[in-house]
Design a protein around this nucleic acid. Structure first.
Length: 436
RNA sequence: CGGGGAGUGGCGCAGCCUGGUAGCGCAUCUGUUUUGGGAACAGAGGGUCGCAGGUUCGAAUCCUGUCUCCCCGACCA
């Protein structure tokens, strides 16, 4: 994409109402604009990041054996009346009335609807186990939205739901999602730590929050220093025993949020106990028959008996992750995107739009990168070099490829790594090879 | 919802107390000189001062109402 044809409104100064780093940077870098309290428009660059994150989440859900579908944002209140949650949910549910006077709502979550849908379509034990998911916008009328997209009212969420015949099966589904979450966040360049969590009003007993560490995180978290090391998440999730062993090993090291601290265990840990701030980016629960029972879902068992399936639900805050990743990865000059979620891989800077040689080389490299399928944002504007550098640093693309008269004279271009600041001069051909 | 604060060109702000018809920086546009880390100079465009009433010869400024946004708290992927 040529910057001269793009829509990238960047600013030097952040709007006064942004407090945290990620929010300021998202506004400055032209990723989002607020349209109402806690509601954001995703501008082109931000939209690309959102889609990247969504894709990674989708790939890992598919890999875990979950099946994608799409439920609506607007739901009939009937689904919620049937589970008794319409009255119970409280004012953070946005209630809407249509012209016929029917009660609707903008879905804050989908347990009620998915259970009804699955109930109506699954009649036999052969239809289970199943995991279904969708990636859809949700709305929760938070009393006070803040921190930009990390705590908006409207947010994009991946929510998956598992249906199993018994608790052992439910645990397997839970474990599969557990692994999928570790893999998902790692692929985004994040270290996410699973922490024992309260199950809240949703009920149940198996529950973990996935927390990423960031200085500006919303809550305080405590964990064993082993979590500082990179971990590999290679495990065959179809091998039940191996899967359980893996999950056990991942939950062996102490990790707890402020609310769930265990003073005895912490005392034993001594100086291996670390403290940080964290942001919750995922939450998984196993909650049994709460909804299947309420909605009368039963399937025929192999012996002609009727079985009430057990459920779990698994959420990832997709839009929140955009902010969370920035919290975990930025510096004084701007965002530092981990490559897998970067809106473009390469920022191509032509230092002199009025220099024929520079333009020719830049155009050529741009065409070759595009042809090779490398995502490249080409700053072909007639601006000074300094302004281009500042913009590139701000929007945080992983690689900056600089074409200037100085280098052209010596037959070289310059390649800079945004994260490390490492800079090297090399031939255009070598640069291409490195980036493809 | 309780407490606090703010709405003035695209962004950040001053002006309001002490009414006299709007200003600064950044951004934008034009020209010239520049050109490797947010250039300099000269000029230009852009604002019914959130909205609605009221007071007054006259309201960004005073009064009343209302809407929106932000901060602290309880709540939360």
């Amino acid at each position: 994409m040529r910057l001269s044809r793009y829509f990238l409104p960047v600013t030097k100064e952040p709007p006064a109402d942004a407090q945290v780093a990620s929010h300021k940077l998202m506004l400055r870098a032209g990723l989002v604009r607020q349209t109402s309290a806690g509601i954001y428009a995703w501008l082109p660059l931000g939209h690309r990041v959102l889609k990247k994150i969504e894709s990674i989440v989708r790939e890992e859900q598919d890999r875990a054996g979950a099946v994608e579908m799409l439920m609506p944002t607007i739901q009939s209140a009937e689904y919620w009346r049937d589970t008794g949650r319409y009255e119970a949910y409280g004012p953070e549910m946005l209630r809407i009335e249509d012209r016929q006077g029917r009660d609707l709502l903008y879905g804050p979550t989908n347990e009620d609807m998915i259970t009804a849908l699955f109930r109506d379509g699954a009649k036999s034990y052969r239809d289970l186990p199943r995991m279904l998911y969708h990636i859809q916008w949700k709305f929760r009328d938070e009393i006070r939205p803040r921190f930009g997209v990390m705590r908006g009212r409207e947010f994009l969420m991946k929510d998956a739901y598992s249906f199993d015949l018994d608790e052992a099966g439910g645990r397997i589904s839970y474990n599969k999602q557990f692994v999928a979450y570790l893999r998902t966040f790692k692929r985004m360049g994040l270290r996410a730590i699973p922490m024992q969590a309260d199950t809240g009003p949703i009920g149940g007993d198996l529950s973990h929050e996935f927390i990423i560490l960031a200085d500006s995180g919303e809550s305080e978290v405590f964990f064993h220093k082993n979590w500082e090391q990179d971990r590999s998440y290679d495990v065959d999730v179809e091998d039940t025993a191996a899967l359980q062993g893996f999950v056990d090993s991942m939950t062996a090291d102490y990790a707890a949020t402020d609310e769930k601290r265990d003073e005895e265990r912490e005392a034993e840990l001594g100086d291996t106990l670390l403290k940080s701030r964290g942001i919750e980016v995922g939450h998984i629960f196993f909650f049994g028959d709460k909804y299947t029972k309420a909605l009368g879902m039963q399937v025929s068992g192999p012996g002609g008996d009727m079985i009430t399936p057990l459920m779990g639900s698994y959420g990832v805050g997709v839009s929140r992750l955009v902010g969370a990743i920035i919290e975990a990865s930025h510096d004084d000059n701007g965002i530092v995107w981990p490559e897998p979620v970067a809106p473009y891989k390469v920022g191509l800077i032509n230092m002199r739009a009025d220099d024929e040689a520079c333009v020719a080389t830049s155009d050529d490299l741009y065409a070759k990168l595009e042809a090779a399928g490398v995502e490249v944002l080409y700053d072909d504007r007639d601006e000074r070099g300094g302004a281009k550098f500042a913009t590139m640093d701000l929007i945080g693309l992983p690689w900056q490829l600089v074409i200037g008269p100085r280098g052209i004279k010596n037959g070289v271009v310059e390649l800079t790594n945004r994260a490390t600041g490492e800079r090297e001069e090399l031939s255009a051909e070598s640069a291409l090879e490195k980036l493809v």
